[in-house]
Design a protein around this nucleic acid. Structure first.
Ligand SMILES: [Zn+2]
Ligand SMILES: [Zn+2]
Ligand SMILES: [Zn+2]
Ligand SMILES: [Zn+2]
Lengths: 153, 153
DNA sequence: TCTTACTTTATAATCATTATCAATTGATAA
DNA sequence: TTATCAATTGATAATGATTATAAAGTAAGA
């Protein structure tokens, strides 16, 4: 059976890049933390456990390469660091995010939801959409439930 | 007649801040460049023309203050700098952006467009939306020669 | 006037990211 | 296998944006 790593290796080779041990270790960390939104520093600290010799610059370079190849998406939630998000295999669009202002949690919305909106934008603004970023800021379900347990004052 | 500056002054006073000459000069620059998306450095260079003694740190502090008071919105288009966007007076939500991958132009969409989507998110994800960021990346009407060279609308 | 809190300026410090460069690796051909 | 050469790496320096610090200035109120 072809694994996810194998397919990424093919994508790299198709663009004439090698899947070096450092690159493979970095990809494995991303796969192992698919639901997280890791910064380059986060990835570096995690990857050092399985490849202690790796340098921070290599992690940055690898993440940049994976971004170019559209294997990961780079996103910024306004906290001064870029975060790297594995793109779902076969997903037409980048998924959306829910950032909780209270607890800081970042949840994902995999559904598209923007189909109609993109139709309007393409037609009315004559804009050819290649990608999008949609983030909602607010109170997540966890913090909502907690506050509804407490009666309002 | 009450000007936009007067109303911003009231908003500052309501939060017990003063509209100092430096803050006023900074706000004037933002008003004079409402359709642009200026970085702190951009604002600093422009504001020095009308208030040469101002310091960069003051510009940063003023922009941060205006962001807190929701007079401006801070946004990041992934190029490593934060940009500051005057919020439309009375606008319920932050407007959306079209970033051209070819010429770098940033156009604005003032229409809401997200009403239905936000309804779904609030209900299905039990997420209480306070704000949003929606940016489309693609080819703008100027660079797009598939159809006419006419601007939209 | 004196007091006090707020604000500013210049500058240093911090933090993320990128550039540099010598050393290493890995694919390929002799 | 060994030589070759471009790709890649790791350590570190450099850069650039932003934030923190500290001393000085400002303005309102007692
Ligand atoms: Zn929460
Ligand atoms: Zn995500
Ligand atoms: Zn364009
Ligand atoms: Zn805008």
């Amino acid at each position: 059976m072809e694994t996810r790593i194998d397919r990424i290796k093919k994508q790299l080779h198709a663009a004439s890049y090698k899947l070096t041990p450092q690159r493979e270790a970095t990809v494995r960390i991303l796969l192992d933390h698919e639901e997280d939104h890791l910064s380059a520093e986060d990835v570096y600290l995690l990857v050092k456990d399985i490849a202690p010799e790796i340098g921070l610059a290599t992690v940055y370079r690898t993440l940049e390469l994976l971004t170019e190849l559209k294997i990961v998406d780079k996103i910024n939630f306004g906290d001064g660091v870029s975060r790297y998000d594995l793109r779902q295999e076969g997903a037409a669009h980048f998924h959306h995010h829910l950032v909780c202002l209270e607890c800081g949690a970042v949840d994902e919305i995999q559904e598209d939801l923007l189909g109609d909106v993109e139709g309007v934008v393409e037609k009315r603004w004559n804009f050819q959409i290649k990608d999008h970023r949609l983030t909602f800021h607010g109170i997540c379900w966890r913090c909502n439930d907690r506050s509804s347990q407490d009666p309002p004052q």
